[in-house]
Amino acid sequence: MADAYLIPAVNGVAYGLLLYTVAAGLTLTFGVAGVLNLAHGTVYVLGGYLAVSLSDGTWTGLALGALAGTGAGLAAGLLLWGMLRPIEGRGHLAQALLTFGVALAGGALLVRAFGTDELRPSLPAALDAPVDLFGHRYPAYRLGFIGVAAVLALCGVLLVRRTRFGAAVRAVADDRDMVAVLGLDPRAVMAGVLAAGGALAGAAGALGAPILGPGPRTADTTLLLSLIIVVVGGLGSIGGAFIAAIAVGQVQSLGVIVAPDWAPYLLFAAMGVALLARRRRWAT
């Protein structure tokens, strides 16, 4: 009987890793720069649209799409940073509202450019076929995605845990005043973090397009799921976000089969509980 749950569970891992890549960017911007970036889902969608447009069924197209998605995400992050500069010191809420407006307008522009359908890239033939997984059929692309995303996630965790850059990021996430203590230029930190967060979202959008393709509703879905992951994972913790993302992936994949009546509530309920449990530290 465990066999029955194998494919949904593997699938949940693929989904979770995708969400982790997106949420890692959001965690970074929120944890380090203190910006609640509500345009994060829109950057994901931007990466997705670019990947779809550049895809032509070849490996080159796939690689180009991934590069373009990452690059566009990075640029979008820098653009956001530029837009946030004039309202520096006006608090989290002004930032959240501004990024929300950007999300609304940017989403509308993207729909105008790419239409209202949810799009999927055309993949190289080898990836666009099922492969055998313990006697089950499973889409080759998703299996490949699990591999790539796992490597990316591992690199990310090593970067944050083992390098000086990571140490600085962790220090700042713990206490934002550490920027000054470490002798960092706060403006450079902001720009870097927003660019990195955008790049992660753009890359996720490009690589995740065959799984969670760009469309008019995708930005909202991605943003809400990443918010849940960031919050449940502990607001700014990369490791916590990883565990939360895998859990969210399982709820979305295994949960809908095992407990279809409760799965929809589970995510936001978990978010509420996590927020109330941690409210003291993040009360500002």
Partner: peptide, 28 residues
Amino acid sequence: PLLLGLLFVAAVYVLPRGLAGINRRRDA
């Protein structure tokens, strides 16, 4: 949505007093 989004962005820049109530909190 495009117009509303732009309005949103403009409101944040142009009407800082519109956010006055929010900003009085010490969350800056």
